[in-house]
């Protein structure tokens, strides 16, 4: 028999991974490209709606819908990147904020118009909703899946950005755009691809999150704060940092709610404030 603390740790870690999956795309766009994309959760919402549509209406298996959610968000983001975002890469932070908030407003209205304001519950097969018993503790299947996907994405992203030619090009383009151009790197393309990657990850995160947090048009605003918390605590430009931050925040939130429920609402913010005062650049931040 395992003591209950293991169950709490597991739930907390899984919750952290949920936060990570929602934020990792932002960690790419804000962290690597230095673009403040507050419309991040709009792309996540798009991924969510695509998934609900495919699974509930067309009867697709959940796992087959996930890549489509990624692609839909990535493609939509390329359209926005080409028309609106790229004009503002060198604009002030505040203009980026205004543009992306504007896009979020538009996306919320569009979602309400197309999908109505009602909650869109995802209909998953029963085996994804149960739990596995192990040494006297219950481990939810869906949470195990979240953890697995989060670990896989972290490994893939780190490998891809650190060890491939594409990753090197992106880092070069972000660090010194003029120099990168001089070396013959197609910077426009690199930026567009990075942005698509970030937004695609947002779409995937949204698709995975809705089973736990639900989906309606206000999604685009509701989870923005959590995304910003994870990315800032993790440190800009660090995928591993976001992963660590999400795990710490998730575990402290769930453990806090279990052991000191009076502090439940405060904990995630207290942890954030504490960590940022200790390390202003974030856990793994370089800048």
């Amino acid at each position: 028999m395992l003591p209950p603390i293991f169950g709490v740790l597991f739930d907390g870690f899984a919750y952290g991974m949920l936060l990570f999956l929602l934020s990792v795309g932002q960690s790419v766009t804000l962290g690597m490209m230095n673009f403040i994309n507050l419309a991040h959760c709009s792309f996540a919402m798009l991924g969510g709606y695509v998934t609900v549509l495919l699974v509930n209406r067309y009867g697709w298996p959940f796992f087959a819908a996930l890549p489509i959610a990624f692609l839909a968000a990535a493609l939509a983001s390329v359209a926005f990147e080409r028309t609106l975002y790229r004009r503002l890469y060198r604009a002030s932070d505040l203009d980026q904020v205004l543009l992306t908030i504007g896009i979020t407003f538009i996306s919320v209205a569009a979602a309400a118009y197309i999908f109505t304001t009602a909650q869109q519950p995802l209909q998953l097969p029963a085996y994804l909703r149960g739990s596995l018993s192990f040494m006297g503790l219950d481990f939810a299947v869906y949470r195990l899946i979240l953890i697995g996907i989060a670990l896989a994405i972290t490994a893939l992203l780190v490998a891809c950005l650190e060890y491939t030619r594409f990753g090197a090009k992106i880092r070069a383009a972000v660090d010194n755009e003029r120099m990168a151009r001089g070396l013959g790197i197609d910077v426009d393309r690199a930026f567009a691809l990075t942005f698509a990657l970030g937004s695609g990850l947002a779409g995937l995160g949204g698709a995975l999150a809705i089973e736990i947090v639900g989906l309606d048009p206000s999604f685009a605003f509701t989870y923005l704060v959590y995304v910003l918390i994870v990315v800032s605590v993790g440190g800009l430009g660090s995928i591993g940092g976001s992963f660590a931050a999400a795990a710490v925040l998730g575990i402290s939130d769930i453990a806090g709610k279990y052991y000191v429920p009076q502090l439940g609402a405060f904990l995630i913010y207290l942890v954030m404030v504490g960590l940022l005062m200790w390390r202003p650049a974030g856990l793994f931040g370089k800048r």
């Binding site: 209950p4 169950g7 709490v8 739930d11 907390g12 919750y15 949920l18 736990i212 947090v213 989870y223 939130d253 769930i254 453990a255 806090g256 709610k257 279990y258 429920p261 009076q262 439940g264 609402a265």
Partner: peptide, 20 residues
């Protein structure tokens, strides 16, 4: 009894308290 946070996407901790 337990009073739960308003912004609360995950109930596992509170439900565990009830179960205990």
């Amino acid at each position: 009894s337990v009073r739960m946070a308003v912004a609360n996407p995950d109930f596992s901790a509170y439900v565990q308290r009830a179960k205990d």
